[in-house]
C-alpha cells in the first residue's frame, strides 16, 4: 500500500512545552489509523499542525494524492488550501454553524469544489444554476449517507449531540477528501450511536477514503482500526495492530503508570 500522508520529524512547542517532539507518522490509502494517548499527549495539537491551524516549528508534512500521485508539502499552507488538497477534518468540540440549516452546513463543505463568485451570483447564469443544483443534490446525498436526510431543514444547533457529530463528518466529506481526520468522533455518544458511527466510518473507508482518528473509546479503537499509534508527551511511544498495542508494556505504563516495587 502506498502512503498518502507522510509526517517526519514534526516538532511544535508552546514556549517551553514540547507539544510535539520529533513525530513520525504515515497513513496509507484506505487505511483506518487511530491515534491514542493520555490527555495532553499532543494529539489535537498534531491535528492542528496537519490542518494548518498551527504552524509547526520543524519537520515535514507531505500529502500524496492517491489518484494522481501528486505530492504537496503542507507546512505553512493556509487551512483552506490544505482542505482543497484533499484532507478534511472534524473538531473535538463541535464547530458547526448552528444558525444555518443542516443542509447549508454540508453545502459550505462544497465551497472549495465550486467556483461561482460575485458575477455568477448576480447574473445567475446557466453555469451557476447548474453548480448550485449540483451542490444541493450532492449535499443531500451526503446527508442520506450519514443518516440525517430527515433533518435537512433543521438548524444545525438544534440537532442532538450524536447527530451533530455525524453532521460534522458529513460536512467534511462534502469537501471530497481522500484523507479524513476525525477528532474524537464518538465523544459523548451512547453505545447505539457509537455502533452506527463504526458502520459509517467503515462505509467511508470502503469508498476509498483513508481515516486518521483520535479517540478515547478503546472498544471502538480496537474494533475499527487497522493500525494504532500511541502518543505520550508529544512523542510516538508505540505503533502496531490492535493486538500488538494491547500487550505493549510501554502503552500500559503510559496509561496506568508504572508498577510500584
Amino acid at each position: 500500500m502506498k502512503p498518502i500522508l507522510n509526517v517526519s520529524d514534526l516538532s511544535m512547542d508552546f514556549g517551553g512545552i514540547k507539544a510535539l517532539d520529533r513525530l513520525d507518522l504515515d497513513v496509507c490509502a484506505q487505511e483506518i489509523v487511530a491515534l491514542i494517548g493520555p490527555n495532553g499527549a499532543g494529539k489535537t495539537t498534531f491535528f492542528n499542525c496537519l490542518t494548518g491551524i498551527y504552524l509547526p516549528n520543524s519537520g515535514d508534512i507531505q500529502l500524496t494524492c492517491p489518484q494522481t500521485g501528486k505530492k504537496t508539502r503542507l507546512n505553512g499552507l493556509k487551512p483552506n488550501k490544505i482542505t482543497e488538497k484533499g484532507m478534511a477534518r472534524t473538531f473535538q468540540n463541535i464547530r458547526l454553524f448552528p444558525q444555518m440549516s443542516v443542509l447549508e452546513n454540508v453545502m459550505i463543505g462544497r465551497h472549495c469544489r465550486t467556483h461561482s463568485l460575485v458575477l455568477g451570483a448576480i447574473l445567475r447564469n446557466r453555469r451557476t444554476r447548474v453548480e448550485e443544483q449540483e451542490t444541493v443534490d450532492k449535499s443531500y446525498a451526503i446527508l442520506e449517507k450519514v443518516g440525517l436526510a430527515a433533518q435537512v431543514d433543521e438548524f444545525a444547533g438544534n440537532l442532538s449531540y450524536g447527530a451533530q457529530r455525524r453532521l460534522e463528518i458529513g460536512r467534511a466529506l462534502a469537501t471530497e477528501p481522500f484523507l479524513l481526520l476525525l477528532d474524537e468522533p464518538a465523544a459523548g455518544m451512547n453505545p447505539q450511536e457509537t455502533t452506527e458511527l463504526v458502520a459509517l466510518i467503515r462505509r467511508i473507508r470502503d469508498e476509498n477514503q483513508a481515516i486518521l482518528l483520535i479517540e478515547h473509546d478503546m472498544k471502538l479503537v480496537m474494533t475499527l482500526s487497522d493500525r494504532i499509534i500511541v502518543m505520550d508527551y508529544g512523542q510516538k511511544i508505540a505503533q502496531g495492530t490492535p493486538a500488538e498495542i494491547r500487550g505493549n508494556p510501554a502503552v500500559i505504563k503510559a496509561y496506568l503508570g508504572e508498577e510500584v516495587g
Binding site: 494548518g52 491551524i53 447549508e104
Partner: peptide, 14 residues
C-alpha cells in the same frame, strides 16, 4: 453567513 458563525471551521472547510 458561515464566516459570521465560525471562522476556524470555515477555513477548515476550505
Amino acid at each position: 453567513l458561515a464566516l459570521r458563525e465560525d471562522e476556524i471551521a470555515c477555513q477548515a472547510m476550505g
